[in-house]
Amino acid sequence: MNRVNLCLILVLLFSFNSTACELRDINEKVKSNHLAAEFKQSKVIKALSRPLLSKGYIWFGETEQLIWQVISPLKSTMVIQPGKIKQFDKNDNPLKLHVNSMATDLSNVFFKLLVGDFSSLSDTFKIAAECQKAGWKLKLNPRTPQLSRIINQIEVIGNEKLEAIMIEEKRGDHTTIELFNSTQITEDNFKRYLKDSQKERRKDSRKDSQKKDNEIQRDKK
């Protein structure tokens, strides 16, 4: 039902210069369990006189964790998992900062966009797909009030791979991220962050088992 509707709208909207195409096809084409790219980000913030420019690496692999590492202007690293973000500062020390609950919601969207899992976003976004010779383009408009409070529209462009993401915020700020695939980036560059989160997991379970021991002791008493 949903798909029929979507196709109908797409046919009406893009019947002139572009061919309507199915989200599913794009999804199948792009979705992969591996991603290694360089990125360039330009953030245009209304309140600031000049755009904020940054660049760095993106990596996604078997561990299901997405790494977003900025190298300029200031090194910083984010490890994104569905529902969870970890941040590291320039010295690779973990940074604990609960910016706001929006950040987690946004990080979920961001994660799915980058790994090319577009279909799963159709619950939270109205997605329009458009195919051209040069590639495809998706327009995402938020459905949920939480997201529409901050995001106007997200555009995703790609061909064989994901090439760019444009985020237009409600307040008028724009963020453009361009991706360039690279073979030089390997898991080795990021092992420490992945390891860190594994270590932490182990620490958590150790804490749990210690707690259990304590309980057992208390019970014995």
């Binding site: 977003w68 200031l74 910083s76 995001i151």
Partner: peptide, 12 residues
């Protein structure tokens, strides 16, 4: 770091 993050909506 926060402001340059793509997820920093509104923090500015």
């Amino acid at each position: 770091q926060q402001i340059y993050s793509p997820l920093s909506a509104g923090l500015i």
